[in-house]
Write a protein that binds this DNA or RNA. Sequence first.
DNA 1: AAAGATTTTCACTTAAAGTGAAAAATTAAT
DNA 2: ATTAATTTTTCACTTTAAGTGAAAATCTTT
Lengths: 105, 105
Amino acid sequence: MFNEEDKSYPIELVAEFLGVNSRTLYYYEKFMLVCPMRRGRKRYYSKADIEWLEFVREMMYEQGMNLRSIIVLIRRRDDVVLNKCPQDVVDCYKNYLVRVRNFGE
Amino acid sequence: MFNEEDKSYPIELVAEFLGVNSRTLYYYEKFMLVCPMRRGRKRYYSKADIEWLEFVREMMYEQGMNLRSIIVLIRRRDDVVLNKCPQDVVDCYKNYLVRVRNFGE
DNA sequence: AAAGATTTTCACTTAAAGTGAAAAATTAAT
DNA sequence: ATTAATTTTTCACTTTAAGTGAAAATCTTT
């Protein structure tokens, strides 16, 4: 499922697959944790988006991490997270690089 | 303040310095986020403990991270965190190394 | 224009993080 | 050793982030 590189899927299908409410995906979008492609207002989630969201769920559910921590790791260019995070999401946090550099001082 | 390498300080003083309730420090201890030295039941926080706790507060308050995420980063031997984390706290999570190795698979 | 789907808004639930207060136990002082 | 002062522990409460339900608003499509 969701194996086709070039296909994209509507929010309700993705939410069901991940076992969350579609509202949760809208919620993540407010934090720029995911940026699904759009045609008009309608969202289309790519394979990469879905794999990333699966990883986000694992960090949050299995590991007990929170949203902000995931964002902090994106900003810090953390290896483990960056490995799975779609480029456009990483790019959303480009302007935060300065803050990351000063992290902890 | 708290500049002397070999001195140690009672919980109430440390809590006040950090701007938290002393109950918060007991709470952190339940999660093994800090292991103050003890003489009998009384806790004594070292300079290293206090600097670590300051960093923990920064991660949680400034960055919005949660407790579990900090623990995940200790387990993962994250550079930024390990740099500030006292060895005895790191050691508390030694037995979790295997899980870290399998992280994300 | 009507039916069906998607998005948006409002308000609610849940769980983690943190705290207040008082009882119990220790430590320190006389 | 007995009392006074601290510290620890327990219970229950508050606050906030994360997540959700339901309905209204906005498309889409036929």
